[in-house]
């Protein structure tokens, strides 16, 4: 199973994107999106943003669960207290694990944000952050 994960800033700008693959059922963590899907992923996420922006005022929760689907792919969302949107494109329903994944990404984001040289909406380029995301994928997805 493959996942596409994006973190979107407050101006609808992506600050981090990654294609992730599952480690479960013998997977080796390599994402296996077709060429078409690779191109479409960011658009799918982007078009779901409107739904997120609407939903986030209807509930206190950070985790918004599944908010959209597209030809068999689900889009799950999570909005941090500072309105950074975590979006995950996934094939299987896995609410509890995805929620935990998002919560731990929020912790990573907080650590990134606490850096005085990082401002909100800056892209996240750290390779350490990348490795941590892959570790979380292994743990939950």
């Amino acid at each position: 199973m493959s996942y596409y994960f994006a973190m979107i800033g407050t101006r609808d700008n992506p600050i981090y994107e990654a294609e992730l693959g599952t480690f479960k059922q013998g997977g080796d963590g390599t994402p296996k999106f077709s060429a078409e899907m690779k191109e479409l992923n960011p658009f799918i996420i982007h078009s779901s943003l409107d739904i997120v922006e609407d939903l986030q005022w209807a509930t206190n929760s950070l985790y918004l669960k599944i908010i959209d689907n597209y030809y068999g792919y689900y889009v799950s969302a999570y909005v941090t207290p500072t309105n950074i949107k975590f979006m995950l494109l996934h094939e299987n329903k896995n609410e509890e694990n995805i929620k935990q994944f998002f919560i731990e990404v929020n912790d990573l984001y907080l650590k990134t944000l606490l850096n005085p040289f990082y401002s909100v909406n800056d892209p996240i380029k750290s390779t350490m952050f990348d490795s941590k995301i892959k570790l979380l994928t292994k743990k939950y997805l």
């Binding site: 941090t80 207290p81 500072t82 929020n106 984001y109 907080l110 944000l113 606490l114 909100v120």
Partner: peptide, 13 residues
């Protein structure tokens, strides 16, 4: 201002 967002995220955490 530059520390406001950091303080919000930290306190919510």
């Amino acid at each position: 201002y530059s520390i406001g967002a950091k303080i919000l995220e930290l306190n919510c955490y």
